[in-house]
């Protein structure tokens, strides 16, 4: 079997893609090729099927007593997956509006109707059992922040990073260091003309974050210090 040049670049990555361990750059590059190559797409499906079969090798084990009831309670109390999706979309939209309403460097903009803003904030937090939303400046040259991290403590907790467009363009790898010293890779943000932004849910609480590290393509590092 002779690979075309484009396939030759993607084929070696397919096992890692199927196992979910490819880097963000490799994944993006592969997916671009896979969108137009049926052959490689079928190959990926075969690799994915194998990974699925491997996961099935783990022996079955009955969970402790009470497990079923503990799982079913919130599942049957919730309003259903469709409404949850709508609620999540409403949360994101409300959060986006809230973020857009904040001035640079502070959580709140002083408005005439602070009570309405506070009520809106509480309502937004309540949607996903949120406790708070905070911003952390990304250290820049001098006193001007290089950007901001918006951190939401809820279920799930998430981070949203915004950076202006006068930075070096390219892919910025993002990691966080937790208070107990662990490094957690989070993904990659692409900065283009006009700036860059990035967001995702995080597998720990916001208050467990020590520092967010944004690794620029030139080898430097920008920090957002959650615990000064």
């Amino acid at each position: 079997m002779t690979d075309r040049p484009a396939c030759a670049g993607t084929r070696p990555l397919l096992p890692e893609l199927a196992a979910g361990i490819a880097s963000a750059e490799e994944r993006a590059r592969s997916l671009r090729h896979l969108a137009g190559c049926g052959r490689c797409h079928r190959e990926l499906e075969a690799h994915t099927a194998l990974v699925d079969e491997l996961l099935l090798l783990a022996p079955e084990r009955q969970p402790p007593a009470g497990f079923e009831a503990a799982v079913l309670a919130p599942m049957t109390q919730r309003r259903g997956p469709r409404r949850r999706r709508l609620r999540d979309a409403a949360l994101l939209a409300a959060a986006a509006v809230l973020i857009a309403a904040t001035s640079a460097g502070s959580v709140w903009r002083q408005t005439e109707d602070d009570r309405a803003l506070a009520d809106g904030y509480r309502e937004t937090l309540a949607v996903a059992k949120g406790r708070y939303l905070k911003t952390v400046a990304i250290d820049g040259a001098g006193s001007t922040p290089a950007g901001y991290v918006f951190a939401y403590q809820g279920t799930p907790a998430w981070l949203f990073v915004t950076m202006p467009g006068d930075l070096r363009q390219g892919d910025y790898r993002i990691t966080l260091t937790s208070r107990d010293g662990r490094t957690v890779p989070l993904g990659t943000m692409t900065v283009r003309p006009g700036g860059g932004s990035w967001g995702r849910t995080i597998p720990l609480d916001v208050h467990d974050i020590l520092v967010l590290r944004i690794h620029d393509p030139g080898g430097g590092e920008l920090l957002a210090r959650f615990m000064a």
Partner: peptide
């Protein structure tokens, strides 16, 4: 929906818990 959820959990709980425990 409650019945569907119960069937879903009962059918797969040993597999899911088994993988997590492993």
């Amino acid at each position: 929906d409650a019945e569907t959820a119960a069937v879903f959990v009962r059918r797969y709980q040993a597999r899911v818990y088994g993988l997590a425990f492993a």
